[in-house]
């Protein structure tokens, strides 16, 4: 038998506090999410790509001496060169400048649509879920009926009647687009509202709007963010689709969608006119999609340990 000094058998004060300290320190939820997100290489790549795209959308148009709208009929359909990095289009406009100018418009449409969806969706879904009962019943019935309306068909009709333009496009996209967000927010709020901390806040007499904005919305933030990262590429896509149908932003404005749909027509002879806008649409889609996926995985509580 091993020899052990007698004093080792003195009682030692065990306190529970120490036991707690020995347990793993619990990271705050968002810190946890960000750690997991950063471990996802693909999602990080997408995020960096997005930052670069936004950077170029802001500064790209100033990097050349050309203007996005000025025609140069002496230099139409030029291939990429040191003068025109991405070449020129059929009116001799510099595609590099137009690409980044178009990035602004495409990204703006995406962001604006997502933000409007967010505001309406959060309010509608939040109120329906929080109030419950008859209010919920009526509000969600309305949402269900709107949800049944074929989205793109309605957008097309609105664009035909209201006329082309940035504002009408965003209006057309958001008129039923918010329903999805509302449904998701409502689901989250329903799930959260009976949890202890919310009940506690309610018994302490916190007001409805306070509970909504202090407790429910922050906790539903995860799903809201994921939905938003997937709304933006959807809107950019819709913009490209409408442009192809001739319902895009009016000339001389440039968006990736209008540039690509003009490029498609010229594909056989001037492929660069499709190549550049198409590449950036795809990169943006790709970036938003992988970032959205990465966020969802990082937020998934089942992976949380």
């Amino acid at each position: 038998m091993q020899q052990i000094p007698k004093e080792m058998f003195q009682p030692a004060v065990a306190n529970v506090g120490e036991a707690e300290k020995l347990s793993k320190p619990s990271l705050s939820f968002w810190k946890d999410v960000s750690i997991r997100f950063r471990k996802n290489k693909l999602a990080m790549f997408g995020l960096i790509l997005l930052i670069l795209l936004v950077f170029m959308a802001i500064f790209g148009p100033y990097m050349t001496k050309y203007d996005y709208a000025t025609n140069d009929l002496m230099n139409t359909n030029q291939p990429p060169s040191s003068k025109h990095w991405f070449g020129t289009d059929e009116l001799g406009r510099d595609i590099f400048t137009r690409t980044w100018y178009g990035a602004r418009i495409s990204l703006f449409i995406g962001l604006a649509a997502a933000l409007i969806d967010l505001v309406i969706g959060v309010l509608w879904g939040g109120i329906a879920g929080y109030r419950g009962g008859k209010t919920d019943e009526i509000m969600m019935r309305i949402a269900d009926i709107l949800y049944g309306v074929p989205y793109l068909l309605l957008v097309i009709i609105l664009m035909v009647i209201l006329g082309q333009g940035l504002g009408t496009m965003i209006l057309a996209m958001t008129i039923t687009g918010w329903v999805n967000m509302a449904r998701i927010v409502r689901g989250q709020v329903l799930q959260l509202k009976n949890q202890e901390y919310v009940l506690a806040a309610r018994t302490l007499g916190a007001s409805t709007s306070r509970i909504m904005f202090k407790h429910l919305i922050p906790n539903a933030m995860g799903s809201i963010l994921v939905t938003m990262t997937l709304t933006i590429p959807n809107a950019i896509f819709t913009e490209a689709f409408l442009s192809y149908l001739g319902l895009g932003v009016p000339q001389p404005l440039a968006s990736w969608g209008t540039m690509a749909s003009e490029g498609v027509q010229a594909l056989q002879y001037y492929p660069w006119r499709l190549f550049f806008p198409a590449t950036f649409i795809c990169l943006t889609m790709f970036a938003f999609n992988v970032v959205g996926d990465g966020l969802r995985d990082a937020l998934d509580p089942r992976l949380r340990k």
Binding site: F237, A240, F241, Y244, G257, A260, S261, V264, L267, Q268, P271, L274, A278, I281, C282, L283, M285, F286, N289, V290
Partner: peptide, 18 residues
Amino acid sequence: AVLGISVPSFIMASILQY
């Protein structure tokens, strides 16, 4: 799959056709 959802259909179709 990510490529598939990143390419608008008219671009995809034009490229396939080309």
